[in-house]
Each structure stands twice: as C-alpha cells, then as structure tokens.
Design a protein around this nucleic acid. Structure first.
Lengths: 140, 140
DNA sequence: GTCCGTGCAAAGGATTTGCATAATC
DNA sequence: GATTATGCAAATCCTTTGCACGGAC
C-alpha cells in the first residue's frame, strides 16, 4: 500500500536497509496518538500487534533513526527517554508531570533571544531544548 | 569556624540532622570551582580529602538536599545528573558539548514569554529548564 | 553469496535499596 | 536511649553489546 511505499522511501533516503522491524517501528511512530513515546512503549505496541521484535532491536532502530535524523530523542525528567518523529519543524515542549502528556509549541521571540544570548557569549549552538514542566489543564 | 556554623544552619533549616557526610558534601558544593558537579565527582572529591563516605550516601544526601530545596538536579544530555547549589536565583544553562562547562544566564524576555505561553495553554508551570547545547568559545 | 540486521542473553552505567552498624539529638 | 544516617553489597532501571543465525540486496 501507499503508506508502506512512503516509509520505504524514508528508510532508503536515510541509507537504512528496509527491514520488517524498521518499517513496523516507523509505522508506530507515525500512527501513535501520543507523538512522544518511549522505547518500552514502542516495544509493547509491537508485542500487542503480535510482532516478534526484541527490545534491543527497538533501541537499536530508534538510535539509528536518531542518527539518521528521522527521530528526536528527548530526556525529560521522567527517567526514560522518549522519541518523536522529526518532521523538520523545531518546537519546544510542555510536559505534564501528572499524566506525562506532552504539548508542543514554538515562540519566535524565545528562539531569537536564545541566538542572541549564545552569540553574546561567543557560544555556537548545536542544539537546544526548552522544557516547561507543570500540570496540564486536564489534570488540574 | 564561622563557615561551618553557617552550614549547620542551612542543614537545620532544611530539617536535616547535622552529620559529617552532609556537612562535607555541602562544603564541596559551596567551594567547588565548577558550580555544576556530578555525584561521582562529589564522591571523588571526598575520597581525595581522605573522607570515608560511600557513593550511596552521596546520592542519598544529594537527593535529600534536592527535596529540601538546597540543590537543583540537572539532567543534561551527558548521561549523568549534575547538581548545583540552589541560591534562589533562577537561571538557564548553556552547556558545552565538548568540555561540559556550564554557563548560566537569565533573560527576562524569555521568562516572560514562557509564562505567557503556559498561560495560553491553561498550563500551570511547576518548573522549567532551558538548555542550550553547543561549543563554547574556548573549545572552538 | 555477502553483508547487514536481528534475537537473545549477558553486560553496562547510573542510581536506589536492604540491612546491620554507628552516629546524632 | 530512641531514632535516624551511614557503609557496604546487592538490586534495580534503562540502555547497550556480543554472538550466532537469518534476511535483504
């Protein structure tokens, strides 16, 4: 089906051989309600679908995807890393400390200030992250 | 000496019994050139000074200090947590990915924007962190 | 057929915990 | 003296690695 073909292209573009585990994991990342998902959760979803993929492979594939620029790895305060598809649009994150829901946002002004500050320190930014922790509307 | 007395007060204020390991660790946090230091580094410094404190105790004490609001725990991308004394003045961090040096900064505009954004999502901020990763002037 | 990817189990690093001893108040 | 803290070793959590086998190109 069309969807699979698109994913094939994604993998090939990234220089990765097209294999069943990689396709399945990419599919989960693309079709999961929560855009931000841990390796363990990916693994559980695979098991639920009856797919026989090892947790080690999940980590390996996610790490390769990260290196290939397909996904972004976040280390929120929760202890485990969470992964999200990198769709090219940078954004920051608001994390609910109760339900672990993640909200994304962008703010031009903040982005500009960050650059200006780094520049004033002679610092070359390679990456940055802004995490707001708190309680989301639903959990209050 | 005066210094020890002050630390005694800090600990008592925090509701913590005054013990040798706690005093020593507090002292290291106060007198270390790098304000941001890992549990392992605290432990090494204790060993160097000939103090017989276990690594488990270092972790326990740092965690208690965190709970008491005496220190802040950061989870930079480096894999291990780093701790810094909480002197009450909030600031953000710029971390050099080469030498792991940490620079602190504050920006009123960014702080304001964060509040405004959270508010617009009905989100109650409990904490937030902004990490700029990059290469510091010295490492370029 | 060659090479890369995978599953499994075992290793790894950072941090936490159980328990008997030792210190504080 | 009662209670809390410590040291040590073992346990735990998340993640990575070694190795023999299976699948992609």
């Amino acid at each position: 089906m069309l969807e699979e073909k698109l994913e094939n292209k994604d993998l090939k573009k990234a220089g990765l051989k097209v294999t069943v585990p990689r396709l399945k994991i990419l599919n989960i990342l693309e079709n999961t309600a929560a855009r931000h998902i841990s390796a363990e959760e990916v693994y559980k979803k695979l098991l639920e679908s009856g797919d026989d993929v090892g947790l080690a492979t999940v980590y390996r594939v996610l790490t390769q995807f990260e290196a290939a620029g397909l996904v972004i790895r976040h280390r929120f305060d929760s202890g485990h890393a969470v992964f999200e598809l990198d769709e090219g649009d940078h954004h920051d994150h608001m994390v609910c400390v109760k339900c672990e829901r993640v909200e994304e946002f962008v703010d031009k002004i903040i982005e500009e200030r960050q650059l200006a500050i780094a520049q004033s320190y002679g610092f070359k930014i390679t990456d940055h992250c802004l995490y707001l922790y708190g309680i989301c509307q639903g959990c209050q």
